[in-house]
Design a protein around this nucleic acid. Structure first.
Lengths: 343, 343
DNA sequence: TTTTGAAATGCAAGCCATTACATTTTCTCA
DNA sequence: TGAGAAAATGTAATGGCTTGCATTTCAAAA
């Protein structure tokens, strides 16, 4: 209201200065070959002299696109998504685009709000993590012809573009590797599985592995907790107070695993001699903690980069969904070993 | 041009559906308290029903404002800026704004390009880290009345808004605390100081402390390196190969310090018994590494939040710069102790 | 009841670049 | 030289929203 209007030069100012119409100036800028050489020179002079730069809003309304792409991630704090998002952003910049990020704090409603905000901010495309959300959001986006790419997961929906990996298979594979070492009593510390398909998939993969090893998957203790080192820490302590102590703790992600390691050490347990602990994600933390975490390596950078390229290409041709599944691998470090005592 | 225009509902459609004027709908969306409760309910109903979402370009052009704020940080990868940026973003969201982030990879030219891009994308205000950059950029922004807030540092320039802390004083204070323990031979592992005022300030603070303790500041070994755990690691190894081994390594940030700790342990040195190592920033990593880092705690969240609020209030009243200096503190953890052997 | 100021609402003028279409200028060739 | 085509340029509609100002509504005070 009290806001002073910026009086920056407009197309019209340039037109006046060069004694031509605004249409001609616009053409000079966008389709220079449609303008005679002499006129163009005059116009460009005026542009220089006035330090003219086209107005973003006006351009957006006319072109019906902004060059801005949105990414909504559950959290920016711990570095789970950091590498992927950084790669996403770099790839966008390489394509002359810009990234908007928002974080949803693992909350579906917040995410929905963020999606609407990004649309209202003119996002040409959106990156989302995982698949769990109100289906209405997809139609909201489809209606507006805004392409969406899912990352960090894969989807059953064959109309949905994604660049992700198979959380079930990866978790199963790690759990099998651990169980093969002879662990009989194990437990899981997971992120909350409600409205979090990745967490659910990882638990499911672990369950499958347990079943394959002839252990009762129903007897598998599973603790769900929030997303922080402290929560992993507390969850471990909680586990160690009930029943026979497990010799293997499979954590849904590296952050929780780091907390678990710290807690184990705090109560005098040796990792991995007394208890093995595994993570998932292979973030930086995983190799800093001692012992370093045995975990699932996720190709974050590649995923981010490809997601950006996918999104950009979808804005040009939205007709066919693009589905890319990346491979994960297991990184063996010090936190996993055969059980040294009878469970 | 070939882009198909789907006819999405417009403000007018909503206005018709709710039997009010477009002005009222606009106010419902932007200044709800200026509209009566009953009207607002009716309008919101219509918005819901039509699944209306405002057109970004039109809004930007009419309001001369986008609600988008930019932040350019040196890197998103390591979590130095993560907490601060997350807080920045949250505070922005609380004010109904959106954040664009870009990272400059600690490169002035890239940063300049990013600044221009953000402006071209309609940023209403910009957050920058530190003060070192081409002064021409400031006039570019001033001309367009785009407010800028500097964070993570303070500035001499009394026209410049900032929300930061005194890197010199903080580094000096930590170094003094360390030297007071009796260290005689110390070295510094710093981030590159060229075009990085924070890194320079921290080295300077350390130098001042050294001088106050009667040691020759010129004799202080300083290694500059890039920003990663690996670099800190390598820098430490480099230091340990020349001359008498220092008993105190002051690192310009936590990431380098973690690398240094890992390197020390790798070559069989005990931290802190054989060598003390300090960091700066107090990021998550600092408490995960063993021994945990003694470091300078920077109020990242507070800084991010206040920076956002400052930026928003500058867009309303840009006439007076806002300068806020926050306090840092020293967190004593296990990586610093008195020297146990004669240096 | 009447008065009156505040709150709520409406009207309509912008905001700025794009572009279909109209008009003018220039060029080409019989 | 003049007709017609091609090139250059201009005119003005368009897009959807915000907001200064005008008008209406309403409730409290007189």
């Amino acid at each position: 209201m009290k806001r002073s209007r910026r009086s920056l030069p407009t197309l019209e100012d340039v037109a006046d200065a060069a004694s031509v119409s605004t249409a001609t100036v616009s053409r000079c800028l966008n389709e220079p070959n449609k303008v005679s050489e002499s006129t163009r020179a005059r116009v460009m002079d005026a542009v220089e002299k006035l330090r003219y730069s086209p107005n973003f809003g006006a351009r957006a309304i006319a072109a019906n696109r902004t060059g801005i792409f949105g990414a909504i991630i559950p959290t920016m704090e711990n570095s789970i998504f950091a590498r992927g998002i950084e790669a996403f952003q770099k790839a966008l910049v390489a394509n002359n685009k810009t990234m908007i990020v928002a974080s949803s704090a693992y909350d579906v409603d917040q995410e929905a709000a963020q999606i609407r905000t990004l649309v209202a901010r003119g996002a040409d495309g959106i990156l989302l993590i995982g698949t769990d959300r109100d289906p209405g959001l997809y139609s909201f986006l489809t209606e507006r012809e805004i392409p969406v790419v899912i990352a960090w997961a894969i989807s059953d929906d064959c109309t949905q573009s994604y660049v992700g990996f198979d959380n079930v298979a990866a978790a199963k594979s790690l759990a099998k590797k651990a169980l093969k070492l002879g662990h009989k009593k194990c437990a899981v510390i997971s992120a909350r599985t409600s409205m979090n398909d990745r967490a659910r998939a990882r638990v499911q993969g672990t369950r499958q592995a347990v079943a394959e090893f002839g252990l009762d998957p129903q007897a598998l203790t599973i603790v769900e907790t929030d997303y922080s080192i402290q929560c992993g820490h507390d969850a471990f302590l909680g586990l160690s107070q009930v029943g026979p102590a497990p010799t293997l703790i499979i954590c849904g992600n590296d952050v929780l695993a780091v907390g678990a390691i710290k807690a184990a050490q705090q109560i005098g347990l040796r990792v991995p001699d007394d208890v093995s602990i595994t993570g998932f994600d292979d973030i930086e933390l995983a190799s800093v903690v001692s012992p370093a975490l045995t975990t699932v390596h996720v190709p974050h950078r590649e995923m981010g980069r490809i997601a950006a390229e996918t999104l950009v290409s979808l804005t040009n041709d939205p007709s066919h969904p693009i589905q890319i599944e990346l491979e994960t691998s297991i990184v063996e470090r010090g936190s996993l070993a055969a059980p040294k005592r009878t469970g």
